[in-house]
Design a binder for these strands. Sequence first.
DNA 1: AGTTTTTTCAAACAAGCGTTTTAATAAGTT
DNA 2: AACTTATTAAAACGCTTGTTTGAAAAAACT
Lengths: 225, 225
Amino acid sequence: MISTIIKATKAKPSTRKRLIEATAHLFSLHGYNGLTMRSVAKEAKANLAAASYHFGSKDALVLEMLHERIQPINARRLELLNQAKLQQPGIPLSVHQIFHSLIFPIGEEISKSTKSRCSLAQLVARTFTEPTDFIERMHQRFFAQISQTYHAELSATYPHCPPEEIYWHLHLSVAAMLGALAQHRRLEDFTQGHCNEGEVEKMIDRLIEFISEGFIRGIKKFSSS
Amino acid sequence: MISTIIKATKAKPSTRKRLIEATAHLFSLHGYNGLTMRSVAKEAKANLAAASYHFGSKDALVLEMLHERIQPINARRLELLNQAKLQQPGIPLSVHQIFHSLIFPIGEEISKSTKSRCSLAQLVARTFTEPTDFIERMHQRFFAQISQTYHAELSATYPHCPPEEIYWHLHLSVAAMLGALAQHRRLEDFTQGHCNEGEVEKMIDRLIEFISEGFIRGIKKFSSS
DNA sequence: AGTTTTTTCAAACAAGCGTTTTAATAAGTT
DNA sequence: AACTTATTAAAACGCTTGTTTGAAAAAACT
């Protein structure tokens, strides 16, 4: 009786779930080209043909994994955005508020997933640095709309700023965010041990401040001249 | 007579040079794993065995290419740094001056190389996002020293700021720079055509301002509390 | 229970990979 | 001109890749 309960709680997840998790881990480590069906199968303790059976192809497998990982983050972003707007109806959000809603959800997910071996930071970042064609298409589908949302929000905060300049600095902000995520793994090496990769909160706090101020001062300088 | 002169001026470069150039182009497009000896040979209009003959292995070929491309940038950085220090001996450099010396040389090289199909921005950025082991080692060799130089310079500007906080924000700055370079290719898509990828100068100017201000305000906020 | 559907498994497939070999050609030297 | 070295070329090597096959096992359903 007891053993069955233990067995039930410790029962390993479905093959499908294990494949997705292994894919996330290996993709974040080695990128799309560095991920092989055999390495996924091995890590998921599944048969080589399992991934093809469940997802059809390597492309579809990776796309499904990315969908499952990224969708919750984007949903949370919009949630935070709307939440802030409801608290001050009619008043445009501050730059800090806007970038908080953009960056904070990533920190949340990273903290959640530290128990698993997959670094979400690396995964999200790799989505943008991978050159594979199909990932570019997927990127377009996943992020095109949300980037427009943020541009609109920032335009509301700076109603007299030319849209082009908003775009320039939003682009820089997103690039900085992704760069920080991608580089986070190297933090300890880069700082000769002065900073700790595990302090995700510290990183997120500083990143939000860094980007917000970079954005504010940049807009001020380049839209007035 | 004339034909020989034309032939001489238009003579295609040595096989070795063509291989390096093709490697740079394909590496920046597809990364290390996505680059194949056959694709390099084809683009360089050389035989498949040529790369192995001239460089020994794929690893050595890519390393040599990176060395040739990155070394001049780092040299120029130190040159600008020393130049600025000579103009105001004894006085610490401003944050803008420091980051100008870090970022501007990349802009120079990008402008130079726009005639070739290789985007230097992508190449430099990929150096940092590629997970391949040997590239990590190479990165350590190429950038470990220069990152220390910049930390020292910034510490001189902020003598009372704890080194840890300098590291944090230098890390964010470098990450932002690399992120911007890596994302530069997507600029037009991201901004729905509002911004032009070709305007490298604009990007560099805004990047220097963005990072400098992010650094300054971040240091102010997080080292005083 | 028997039957159908879903899932696992080992083995094989063609294609592409980095590298090596061997021979032919070009360049340089005495 | 003869000889030595450096370079190019085509073909093959062993290995890994994503995907498919067909049979065995497990699960689900009537």
